[in-house]
């Protein structure tokens, strides 16, 4: 049988349109994930730089001498905020927040990917995979 050139041309157009649609969705997600990572790191670095400048202004040194002992990320955050509200420890608070922000950045990225696979792509397979990653990370952040 001779293939009908017109119908195969239509198929061609149809399939490339689908491909284009997918490429566009992929583009949106790539941009979102990319910017989440970029903004997270930038905020974290800004906090660290602010802590250093403040420290320099206060003490003419860039050294920080304190320990984070036996706390997970959320305990650390709560503890620093509590100390911060009591006053005086502010450069240190900024540094700890910078470290916390850094650790939360990949976590937020996975969270965004989860929403993307579930809501936008409706890809159950990758929704499950992402959920596994998210649960494992959540577990690690609440370690004691």
């Amino acid at each position: 049988m001779i293939p009908d050139p017109e119908s195969s041309a239509k198929k061609q157009i149809g399939s490339s349109a689908v491909e284009l649609g997918e490429t566009k969705q992929q583009f949106d997600m790539d941009a979102l994930v990319g910017y989440i990572l970029l903004i997270g790191v930038l905020i974290s670095l800004a906090l660290v730089i602010a802590a250093l400048i403040w420290r320099w202004a206060d003490t003419r040194t860039l050294a920080f001498d304190y320990r984070i002992a036996g706390m997970n990320l959320f305990q650390l955050l709560l503890n620093e905020i509590r100390l911060g509200m009591q006053g005086a420890l502010r450069p240190r608070l900024l540094l700890s927040l910078g470290i916390a922000m850094l650790m939360l950045t990949p976590y937020i990225r996975v969270l965004a990917s989860m929403v993307y696979f579930m809501v936008s792509l409706k890809n159950w397979k990758y929704s499950v995979f992402t959920a596994v990653v998210l649960l494992t990370l959540t577990y690690s952040l609440f370690l004691r």
Binding site: R67, N72, G98, I99, L102, M103, P106, S140, L143, R144
Partner: peptide
């Protein structure tokens, strides 16, 4: 994300020194 999982373990163990972290990061 791999590093995040590892870092959480080291954070709880009290091995992350903020004074070293600032210049290195």
């Amino acid at each position: 994300v791999t590093a995040l999982a590892g870092a959480s373990v080291y954070l709880v163990a009290g091995l992350i020194d903020p004074g070293l972290a600032a210049p290195v990061i």
